[in-house]
């Protein structure tokens, strides 16, 4: 089964930014499952450097959960001293971070 072509722009997905590179997928899962059940996590690594890129997309089961997670977790938690930013995922924005000039 291949679920890689999943679209990460539903309103059941949050974007998490400002993640310290020491943070593992396990830590992200454990942190966010404290406030809502998690469907899946996308936590990309740079293919060449094998280092996390500082952001993740976390998929939840309901829109209520997502609204709650954002309210509770945005600007709330520091991991290794870095304050996590949590907001509704915006696929268009995240896909074009490399050329973020066109608004």
């Amino acid at each position: 089964m291949n679920s890689n072509n999943k679209v990460w722009n539903s309103n059941k997905t949050v974007y998490v930014g400002n993640i310290d590179p020491q943070v593992t997928l396990d830590i992200l899962y454990e942190l966010f499952v404290q406030v809502a059940p998690i469907s899946s996590i996308k936590y990309p690594k740079d293919k060449v450097l094998q280092a996390y890129q500082g952001y993740a997309f976390i998929d939840f089961f309901t829109e209520d959960d997502v609204q709650y997670v954002i309210k509770v977790m945005n600007n709330t938690v520091r991991l290794y001293g870095k304050l996590l930013k949590v907001r509704l995922s915006n696929y268009a924005l995240s896909a074009s971070t490399a050329n973020a000039s066109n608004k």
């Binding site: 406030v35 059940p37 938690v77 290794y80 001293g81």
Partner: peptide, 22 residues
């Protein structure tokens, strides 16, 4: 960086806005 006996930082927010819907 949580100290012993200290509640995690999201607990205060939960106290303010209520328990998780799930």
């Amino acid at each position: 960086g949580l100290q012993e006996g200290q509640l995690p930082p999201w607990c205060l927010k939960i106290q303010q806005i209520g328990l998780p819907p799930s």
